[in-house]
Design a protein around this nucleic acid. Structure first.
Length: 697
DNA sequence: GTAGGGTTAG
């Protein structure tokens, strides 16, 4: 029993609801060493694993039919409808009239291109003069190809050919569509394909794949899927290229399940996919950090005995890196080297980025040495990635050496990305003078326009040093050069500068910057300063601010706001607590409190100082509430503040040592667990009562 | 761009 065509179309595919959202692959593939067994491995295949699933997805048995009955093709007079055509559509060269196919006059093409788009009649008459009799197929195609960057001219030519009763085959329309795709003219494309369906010539696989990729590029994903569906109803079975175009659309939409089901259906029809398909699938799963999906791609290739090429390796290495599976990425990299698949600049960019990000110094240095030894190819992005890697691995001297090399190089000169990495590197270690020199001296000398991240780094660095006036200077420069790029991260750095302000004058200077950068934030700060403004109104503006900010900046925003309210800048004393409460409402501080029968704890690590104080106060209150609610309490309470040798990691602990002893809290440094303070239940409750946080019995 | 499909940086 073959499914009716409509059930083959992807938009009507059922997606089983029991599949987990992160990865829909059953956990069947154990992660095995790739390098040790480059030959085919005997994994149980996913189609075997999903056998019962495929019965419900691939076929839709009639009611009453046993699920395990073997379907038979009962109507031999009709061909079996297929999901995919196993033969790729061949490009056909149209019959050409060799007598008239002399190369076209380049001045004619220039003349035609120079005709204003408003003057269609001049375009037509110029053509008619040049071709008293209809042009050959070859000439018409050459003309169309030379109009690739001039979609209006492509359309004109098509119109003129139609008028000249020229035999227009599908290839002519396909070329026009390509020209329109380059110009991102979606509506025009849609219109032309409809016209083809209505009046001919009929669209073929090349038409549909051009249309699907055009819809993708024009961000009309709904249309991409719609046209894929439509080709089945028009009786055109997609081939591998059209299939991969739509798989890519699914990838962009994050529709992994749909892509997987479509792929499996193609496979079930006997399709043997090529490298391009696997690289699309690899990216699709890699972008979602879906390890099982990527392992599936790898295993499928092994099953089909296809050795990945460099592009497939690149997508998989990137994907496993994104999923945090550094060792698998490393194994893949070593495997490709062993198999003689030469890494290119993108491979090296991928692997070095991963090693840098995850502090794999030794692995990084090893690859770098091999790069020099084997003279592996380099490009600008790879150069900058190596620099970023050095910054991540904190090998600043090496970074400086590479930077100097680049300045001397004729081929790989520093660009704005290079400068951004160096500025960040200097700012991280407090070398604001050097960063300043790069940003305001060297970059203009080299005619490089900094982007916002460089300004943000420098503002952050100067802010931490309390150089408020310099922060204002840098901000003004940013407003002048990149006003449209000023973002929430930069505003966060302005806020943290504000917490460093010594007096009203400094604070007003920063407030002035914030007013220009983000009026909502400015309004919120003014409200926070006004003791008459209530919680609900603060909540409304806070929410508005957070909703507009990207997810990764929301918590820093809240931290910084708590910070400025904590410092003695004239904010009402209850603001930090209110803001911390709001941060909790919006899920910015998850998993801070833990309650076990033996111990309750609060984890203040990774909080700013002010936020940590607010969190601790909040915790004391929640303990008091538990007492009042007669909950059973553990014998011990613990506060984590973290530990470490560097200044950043120990600052919270040192601060709390002072704070806790000043306030007489019975939390004492715990020798067994570094970076934490403990209190006995009775001592803590007594102290909470003495502070009025807990009512006396 | 060879009438259609693939991979890199805060």
């Amino acid at each position: 029993m073959a499914p009716p065509l409509s059930t083959l179309s992807p938009s009507t595919m059922a997606v089983p609801s029991f599949l987990p959202s992160k990865s829909f692959f059953p956990k069947f593939t154990s992660i095995t060493s790739i390098t040790s067994t480059p030959s085919l491995q005997c994994h149980s295949s996913i189609s075997e694993q999903l056998h019962p699933l495929s019965l419900s997805l691939l076929k839709e048995p009639a009611q009453g039919e046993a699920v395990n009955s073997k379907p038979t093709w009962v109507n031999p007079t009709k061909s079996k409808p297929n999901i995919i055509s196993l033969e790729r559509q061949q490009r056909t060269k149209p019959a050409s009239n060799r007598n008239q196919s002399a190369s076209l006059d380049p001045t004619l093409i220039k003349t035609l291109i120079s005709i204003p788009n408003s003057d269609k009649s001049l375009f037509f008459s110029t053509l008619s003069n040049a071709f008293p009799s209809p042009p050959s197929q070859d000439d018409a195609l050459s003309l169309l190809k030379s109009f690739f960057r001039h979609p209006e001219k492509s359309i004109f030519l098509l119109g003129w050919l139609e008028e000249s009763s020229f035999q227009l085959e599908t290839i002519f329309y396909n070329l026009v569509l390509k020209s329109l795709r380059a110009a991102r003219q979606w509506d025009h494309i849609d219109q032309i394909v409809h016209q083809m369906l209505d009046h001919g010539p009929q669209p073929d696989n090349i038409t549909y794949s051009t249309v699907i990729t055009a819809a993708h590029q024009c961000r009309r994903f709904d249309k991409a899927i719609e046209w894929f569906d439509r080709m089945y109803s028009a009786g055109v079975t997609p081939d591998e290229v059209t299939f991969s175009s739509v798989l890519k659309v699914y990838g962009f939409l994050g529709k992994r399940q749909e892509a997987f089901i479509l792929y499996e259906r193609g496979r079930a029809a006997g399709w043997k996919p090529d490298h391009v398909v696997f690289s699309i699938l690899g990216k699709l799963f890699g972008d979602a950090a879906d390890q099982d999906g990527m392992l599936y791609v790898r295993d499928e290739m092994k099953r089909l005995e296809i050795v990945p090429n460099v592009v497939v390796y690149n997508t998989l290495i990137n994907g496993f890196g994104r999923a945090g599976r550094i060792n698998i990425a490393k194994d893949l990299f070593e495997e490709m080297c062993q198999l003689g698949v030469n890494p290119d600049a993108r491979t090296l960019t991928a692997i070095l980025r991963i090693y840098g990000k995850h502090k794999r110094n030794q692995d990084a240095m090893d690859v770098w040495a091999r790069m020099k030894e084997n003279r592996w190819p380099v490009d600008q992005i790879l150069y900058n990635t190596i620099l970023t890697m050095c910054a991540n691995l904190e090998t600043d001297l090496e970074a400086e050496r590479i930077f100097e090399d680049m300045k001397q190089s004729q081929k790989w000169r520093p660009d704005k990305w290079t400068y951004s990495v160096m500025i960040k590197l200097y700012c991280r270690s407090g070398k604001s003078e050097r960063a300043w020199h790069l940003l305001f001296e060297e970059m203009p000398q080299r005619n490089l326009q900094p982007d916002v991240t460089s300004y943000t780094s420098l503002i952050d660095c100067l802010g931490k040093q309390g150089r408020v006036n310099d922060v204002v200077v840098v901000f003004s420069a940013a407003m002048k050069t990149v006003p449209s790029e000023i973002d929430d991260l930069l505003c966060c750095c302005l806020l943290s500068t504000m917490a460093q302000c010594k007096d009203e004058k400094q604070m007003n200077a920063i407030l002035g910057c914030i007013e220009k950068a983000n009026p909502t934030l400015h309004k919120l700060i003014c409200m926070l300063r006004d003791k008459l403004v209530g919680f609900d109104e603060i909540k409304k503006y806070f929410r508005e601010l957070l909703n507009r900010a990207p997810v990764n900046v929301r918590r820093p925003y809240c931290n910084c706001l708590i910070e400025i309210c904590t410092d003695e800048l004239g904010f009402p004393s209850h603001r930090p607590h209110e803001l911390f409460h709001l941060g909790n409402i919006y899920g910015l501080y998850p998993h801070i409190e833990t309650r076990r029968s033996s111990e309750w704890s609060v984890d203040l690590r990774r909080l700013s100082l002010g936020a940590a104080k607010a969190a601790l106060h909040d915790w004391f209150e929640s303990v008091a509430e538990a007492v009042e609610d007669r909950e059973s309490l553990p014998p011990q309470f613990r506060v984590f503040t973290g530990h470490g040798l560097d200044r950043f990691k120990s600052v919270l602990t040192r601060y709390f040592e002072g704070y806790l002893s000043e306030s007489g809290a019975p939390l004492h440094k715990c020798p067994e667990k570094a970076g934490s303070f403990v209190a006995d239940k009775d001592d803590l409750l007594q102290w909470l009562q003495s502070r009025g946080i807990l009512q006396a019995d």
